[in-house]
Write a protein that binds this DNA or RNA. Sequence first.
DNA 1: CACTAAGCGAGACGGTACGTCCCGTCTTTCC
DNA 2: GGAAAGACGGGACGTACCGTCTCGCTTAGTG
Lengths: 202, 202, 202, 202
Amino acid sequence: MKSGEQQAKATAASGGRPRSPRIQQAILNAAVELVLEIGFKSLTIDAIAAKAGVGRMTIYRRWPNKAAIVMEAFVARVDPGTLFLSAKSYAESIRLQMRTMAKAFRGKDGALIRALLAEAQFDPELATALRERWTMPRRRMAIAYFEEGKRKRVFRPDADPNAIIDVLYAPIYYRLQMGTGPLSDAYIDEIFEHAMKGLMKA
Amino acid sequence: MKSGEQQAKATAASGGRPRSPRIQQAILNAAVELVLEIGFKSLTIDAIAAKAGVGRMTIYRRWPNKAAIVMEAFVARVDPGTLFLSAKSYAESIRLQMRTMAKAFRGKDGALIRALLAEAQFDPELATALRERWTMPRRRMAIAYFEEGKRKRVFRPDADPNAIIDVLYAPIYYRLQMGTGPLSDAYIDEIFEHAMKGLMKA
Amino acid sequence: MKSGEQQAKATAASGGRPRSPRIQQAILNAAVELVLEIGFKSLTIDAIAAKAGVGRMTIYRRWPNKAAIVMEAFVARVDPGTLFLSAKSYAESIRLQMRTMAKAFRGKDGALIRALLAEAQFDPELATALRERWTMPRRRMAIAYFEEGKRKRVFRPDADPNAIIDVLYAPIYYRLQMGTGPLSDAYIDEIFEHAMKGLMKA
Amino acid sequence: MKSGEQQAKATAASGGRPRSPRIQQAILNAAVELVLEIGFKSLTIDAIAAKAGVGRMTIYRRWPNKAAIVMEAFVARVDPGTLFLSAKSYAESIRLQMRTMAKAFRGKDGALIRALLAEAQFDPELATALRERWTMPRRRMAIAYFEEGKRKRVFRPDADPNAIIDVLYAPIYYRLQMGTGPLSDAYIDEIFEHAMKGLMKA
DNA sequence: CACTAAGCGAGACGGTACGTCCCGTCTTTCC
DNA sequence: GGAAAGACGGGACGTACCGTCTCGCTTAGTG
């Protein structure tokens, strides 16, 4: 279990028990509901406290700002389970994973990651947290998976897993933020094909 | 050759104009200096007004919020000139352009676009403005250039220029924001190579 | 010769023509209408200018502030003619004059003098103007009239006209401002009787 | 039964209370000092807050505007104690009281009441407050005292206490505001004599 | 099994920035 | 060439949240 990580701030100093996890959960739920309802910018510690039926101090005791709350709520939402499910083929399972991610980004997770990623541009601590708790874990899994792909001779032997990740996944974030078009499965397929086959004439 | 022109300028220097572009410029300059100095989040309309020696109302009369100011300052900075300079080869000139962009993103422009893109996630109007005044013009030029590349048989005939753009450029934005590594020329080359040659084993 | 005094700032009735008296009048009219409509506190130079169809500068060129405008409009309203009309008896004509004044104070003049007197508490120049153009002229006429009353043996020989004025008229201003009761003719009569006959048991 | 008592005690005893009266007092003091120093018109909520070392919201939470603050500061200043001290004779104690009032009006209280009375002309709520917390309490005491005077046969039996008040006291307010002369003891005596003995030839 | 210490809701507090209103000045443009 | 129109620098307004700080109440662990 990973409860220790989540309660890092709360439990650390005092030897005592984690402060009521029910309150914790109520705050996170309220934060997520509100951020989806009124948007991150309009989100207010007051509003979260009110919706959670909690005093403001109870929140400040646990998180330094609203971004940290949404951050924690976000990482609690996403299933840290398997990223790449096996499909017909190795390559196909990558495409599938990309589609799954796009689907998530089309929904609530997209709204949350959009807000977090944006806020992280102004808040180095949030940027670090986002990197450590969202980006890097996934990149590490992807790197492992792509190394396997290299061994399986699906990827070129000179392909750098880090570059593979960026070429395949950066467009998804790009479209999520830029609004140059829908984050549809068709778009995913297009990116996947172009990236895998390359852009040059053979 | 010079006397006539310069006299006209000297005359203009003394008097003000309605919606004086000098004031406009003073505000934009102040905004850029401040955003680079103290960061977009700490930027304040008051501070801009003070630094520009201007009343707050003069600012509010022109822009709805600080993001719009920085937006305008940003688009005024960027040279709307040629995107793709001719290099040794067609493909090489793309790589060159990508490097040029990365270089810009490593500097002040990077700080500005980072802030604007982030703020745009919370502000649909800014998002639209950013798309119309920054993203789309460049995409349109790129599309034209890439269509030419298809005619020149550099790109595969089935390559969609929109997809080409995303695969090549999304990683630059991604790294700008994610902080997964430096936006170095080496990184650009890596992305360029992977994207052009494709990820798959031949 | 005192005509110059009243219009000192606004006109030079003699030589060059007064700056368009039509505009002058339009502004004064607009000011009075507005002050009665929305109150002196809410009155704005902008609003006066707009209602008079006039630029703000045109107003500032003539008066230093809104109080001065209302002041001038007020003194222009009141007929500087005879204060004390002859009635059945000398004393009766005083009572009549007091009633006339009360009646005026119940109407628009009351609203104006109330505002001016109040504003004058904060504005020494307005206080001076009010004293010179409203209070003192009337006091001088009253003093003359009351001196006549002393010669006629209506008033006690040891009665000081200045004190007579205050005892008779101060209650009118008092009630105008305090709201302790209506400024009715009955009230005037009551004050008149008490003041004339005295409060003491005979 | 016992718990209630003890609770009440505990609440009262503890130093800090909600709506701390110390802060209240600091604000009122700051307001009075400032209004006497720079005048009511130049008085600013900001300045009061700064001088009192208090946030603006703390002020806005308690009073709707600066007039209300000065109002409360004013009524807190005035000793609500006995108005009429016994002098050699009944009538003499009235004259004494008038002199006391004039003396107060020559000092800080005069500046305050002048501002409040003026502002009340523009602000019905303040007018009501001023009437209820300053004017009427004093009038009620005066009425009681004057009724006693009628029983003592000092005043005419047909004298209306309300009219007595106005004839005696209105001139004090009048001179306070009009600046037609000093609010000296000599002036008070003059008014007193004229009002008591009456203006008419016997 | 009471008692005490903590966590908690509630919300007042000192601040900062906001966006608005109006001031009084100054410039441009039109009639 | 004077007036309307309105932009300008400035200052105060009243509001919204911030993050900190008491207040009593509730409650749970200890003695």
